[in-house]
Simulated assay, not measured.
Amino acid sequence: MTEPRPPRSTRLESRTFILLLIAVTIGFGWILVPFFGAVFWGVVMAILFSPVHRRLVPKLGGRRTPAALVTLALILVIVIIPTVMITGALVREAATVYARTQSGELNFPLYFAQVYDALPTWVTSLLDRAGLGNLAELQAKLTASLQQIGQFVGAQALAIGQNTLDLVVSFFVMLYLMFFLLRDGGALSRRIREAVPLNDAHKRELSQKFATVVRATVKGNVLVAIAQGALGGIAFAFLGIHAALLWAVLMAFLSLLPAVGAGLIWAPVAIYFLVTGAVAKGVILIAYGVLVIGLVDNVLRPVLVGKDTKMPDYVVLISTLGGMAIFGLNGFVIGPVIAAMFMAVWDLYIVERTAVPEEIPISRHPGEGRDPVPPNTVQDPGLRRDDSEGV
């Protein structure tokens, strides 16, 4: 017997409602585009500090609003104020380096020529075969690259100065959003889970995976990057290298990329020391880079991230590079999150496809397929058996 088909008007109303739902969702996302960075980092910070908020609620008598305010103050003191101070110092130091490069006080092509002249003959022959033996051409390319970097830094500084009002508005939008996400985030996440048309097990798995990866990426990778950048900056300052803060930030930035890391900064500097006669400085920097900067990732990352949530390094590398190419600086979080959700969804799909369905015994008669009850057997009083029906 076939079930009656729903009336055509009912199906039309359902499809119209779905289209309306999609349209208003796209429209809401569209109006959030100008504040994408503020909304994104507000959500990330709320997810990262939600455990702190949950611990503060009982200590403040179950009042969620004061707990959210205290958590927001902690975010300001721990994250936002130091970031603003470091960014201001970095902009000033980058401008100083650019000015010294323009005046000739810092001559990177000369440093490159010194390294090239000190290379062994077999290395220079390999460079010649690879088409990299033309020193003048390499110097021209290096100079052009440095000029482009300087122009980019200057353009970014000018953009920051011109868009100060937008930055201030975005900053307060982020703080405002963080407060309400901390206070009402639990109810909002439950509401979102109820609206997602998946079974409860899948929704629970995906939501836990999302929160875990966000916390792991920010708390783990960022703290590891900060540690490596700080250690590298201390070494550069101790060895008397100019613009130690600038190089420290670059090392921290590159530390977000596994298999690449801060070695792209300290290794060329160590090579320069070795080939220019500062052998002691070169050996110290190499030993420090390998034993301290290089190993801090292996020591801190398992503690901060956890081995069970760590994705393969090649997945992290590709997703981080791709995310930053598409979303800019925000991509170092967005890329790994998308990759982790991709892997989680496919894992759930594979589990569903390979799950063995439970076998249900098929019987032609009501009493067939059951063990018969021996006569004169006392049954459980809680079980009622109707002998006339056999059930």
Rank of each mutant, 00 (worst) to 15 (best):
residue 3 E to R: 12
residue 6 P to K: 05
residue 7 P to F: 10
residue 11 R to G: 11
residue 11 R to I: 11
residue 13 E to Q: 12
residue 24 V to W: 12
residue 34 P to N: 00
residue 35 F to E: 01
residue 35 F to I: 03
residue 37 G to W: 02
residue 47 I to C: 00
residue 56 L to K: 03
residue 60 L to V: 01
residue 60 L to Y: 00
residue 63 R to V: 01
residue 64 R to L: 10
residue 65 T to F: 13
residue 68 A to Y: 03
residue 70 V to K: 01
residue 71 T to R: 02
residue 72 L to S: 03
residue 78 I to Q: 07
residue 79 V to K: 01
residue 80 I to A: 04
residue 86 I to F: 13
residue 93 E to Q: 15
residue 95 A to F: 12
residue 106 L to N: 13
residue 107 N to E: 13
residue 108 F to R: 14
residue 111 Y to I: 11
residue 112 F to Q: 13
residue 116 Y to T: 07
residue 116 Y to I: 08
residue 118 A to P: 09
residue 124 T to C: 08
residue 125 S to D: 13
residue 127 L to P: 05
residue 135 L to K: 04
residue 136 A to L: 12
residue 138 L to K: 13
residue 143 T to G: 14
residue 143 T to H: 13
residue 147 Q to K: 13
residue 148 Q to P: 01
residue 151 Q to C: 06
residue 152 F to W: 15
residue 154 G to S: 11
residue 155 A to Q: 12
residue 155 A to Y: 12
residue 157 A to V: 09
residue 158 L to N: 15
residue 163 N to V: 02
residue 164 T to D: 01
residue 171 F to C: 03
residue 175 L to Q: 00
residue 175 L to D: 05
residue 179 F to A: 02
residue 179 F to P: 00
residue 180 F to I: 12
residue 182 L to S: 14
residue 186 G to I: 00
residue 190 R to C: 08
residue 199 N to V: 07
residue 203 K to W: 03
residue 216 A to N: 10
residue 220 G to P: 13
residue 226 I to K: 03
residue 228 Q to R: 02
residue 229 G to K: 04
residue 229 G to F: 08
residue 236 F to I: 03
residue 241 I to C: 07
residue 246 L to W: 04
residue 248 A to Q: 01
residue 248 A to V: 06
residue 252 A to S: 12
residue 252 A to Y: 02
residue 252 A to K: 00
residue 256 L to A: 03
residue 256 L to H: 07
residue 257 L to Y: 05
residue 259 A to I: 07
residue 264 L to E: 06
residue 265 I to S: 08
residue 266 W to C: 05
residue 273 F to Y: 12
residue 276 T to N: 09
residue 276 T to M: 09
residue 278 A to D: 15
residue 279 V to C: 02
residue 281 K to M: 14
residue 282 G to T: 09
residue 283 V to P: 03
residue 284 I to R: 04
residue 284 I to K: 02
residue 290 V to T: 11
residue 292 V to P: 07
residue 298 N to R: 14
residue 298 N to D: 15
residue 304 L to I: 10
residue 305 V to D: 05
residue 306 G to W: 08
residue 308 D to S: 15
residue 309 T to W: 15
residue 316 V to E: 14
residue 317 L to I: 08
residue 317 L to A: 08
residue 330 N to G: 09
residue 331 G to C: 09
residue 334 I to C: 11
residue 334 I to S: 11
residue 336 P to S: 11
residue 337 V to Q: 12
residue 342 F to M: 07
residue 348 L to P: 04
residue 352 E to K: 14
residue 353 R to S: 08
residue 354 T to W: 03
residue 354 T to F: 05
residue 355 A to W: 00
residue 355 A to Q: 03
residue 357 P to W: 05
residue 358 E to W: 07
residue 361 P to Y: 06
residue 368 E to G: 02
residue 370 R to C: 07
residue 371 D to W: 05
residue 374 P to Y: 00
residue 376 N to A: 07
residue 381 P to F: 02
residue 382 G to M: 06
